[in-house]
């Protein structure tokens, strides 16, 4: 594009500023202000949200930080043993399920679609399936989990593996779509070069495509991890516990078959309890601060990572 473009070109901008200096173009300035205020309001809401939640949750979090971290579901909010350890454990497990199932399957599917798939009905069907799965409401995945894992595979008893697999399925399309985008962005010159020196398709993927696409894939995976950790609706359908969960000391494999809870479920449970026992309100606020910190950290790393590599590659 040899011509000056309005968007980023400094000269064009300066000329424009000269012509439409404030006062001359009232409507233009008004429109611009209106559009900016839409953006500002959105950001302001986020700020209010974070401040409100931190204000609600901070006394609990700072007052009894250690206990809150290691505590469990309790019947009374005044109990010293009240805390989020079981929710954290469940959420870490869920993240592990995503990393263990969704990540390899999702990235493999993306590689197939971008590097191997011929243009035929099967590829088309896969493509349509993934796109539509990404738009299915999360609560519907809960119905699938309830039917498939709880009722069919586990005889009607809720279990950690059911929650983990349900959320792994939920984020799979996100991982496929983001990974496919990252793989699509690999310059074909890189691949042609590798083919030119005799590499097989797998060699090309392994040595050229994946390393180049890795940051994009990682970003997508982090985003889907944070999505999975924050989801509550499917877990409610699958039967996550809000009442009492015994503090078992079971081995990792045992835990897969046991009843479970997760951070968002604990928050929902405490918000509901806050009617009968007001102290659960601030406790829910504190749990939200922890969840939000976790999710925002994952998101920020993902966004920064992407920004860094985008800049590096120009």
């Amino acid at each position: 594009m040899g011509l000056s473009t309005i968007g980023d070109n400094q000269v064009a901008r300066r000329v424009e500023d000269e012509i439409f200096r404030s006062g001359r173009d009232l409507r233009g300035t008004g429109f611009r202000t209106l559009m900016f205020s839409a953006l500002a309001v959105s950001v302001f809401i986020l700020a209010v949200l974070i401040v409100q939640v931190v204000v609600d949750g901070w006394p609990t979090l700072s007052g009894r930080f250690g206990d809150f971290w290691s505590g469990t579901l309790r019947s009374r909010s005044s109990d010293d043993g009240l805390g989020i350890s079981q929710g954290l454990k469940g959420s870490v497990w869920i993240a592990a399920f995503v990393a263990f199932f969704s990540f390899p399957i999702g990235v493999s599917a993306a590689i197939y679609l971008e590097e191997y798939a011929p243009r035929n009905w099967l590829t088309n069907t896969i493509d349509i399936a993934i796109r539509n799965l990404a738009g299915v409401p999360s609560v519907v995945y809960g119905l699938l989990g309830l039917f498939l894992f709880v009722k069919t595979l586990n005889g009607g008893q809720s279990a950690l593996f059911a929650g983990g697999l349900t959320l792994a399925i939920l984020v799979l399309p996100i991982i496929v779509i983001t990974s496919a985008e990252a793989i699509r962005a690999v310059p074909s010159s890189l691949k042609q070069g590798a083919y030119g020196v005799g590499a097989t398709q797998w060699d090309v993927i392994r040595t050229q495509v994946l390393p180049f696409a890795a940051p994009g894939i990682l970003t997508g995976t982090l985003l889907s991890l944070s999505r999975a950790v924050g989801e509550a609706a499917p877990l409610i359908l699958v039967g996550a516990i809000t009442g009492r969960l015994a503090a078992r000391d079971s081995s990792l494999i045992d835990q897969l078959g046991e009843r479970f809870t997760a951070m968002p479920i604990i928050i929902v449970g405490w918000v509901r309890n806050s009617g009968a026992d007001e102290g659960f309100g601030p406790a829910a606020g504190a749990a939200i601060v922890v969840l939000l910190a976790l999710v925002i950290a994952m998101n920020s790393v993902a966004v920064l990572l992407r920004g860094y590599f985008e800049k590096k590659r120009g």
Binding site: L73, R74, S75, D79, T242
Partner: peptide
């Protein structure tokens, strides 16, 4: 009744830590 059974389980836990009580409502 859930809170009663949960509270009993909490008190019981300190006496018999190897009894695992799960409660839903």
């Amino acid at each position: 009744v859930e809170p009663i059974s949960v509270r009993v389980a909490e008190l019981f836990e300190s006496i018999e830590p190897d009894v695992f009580v799960d409660v839903e409502g």
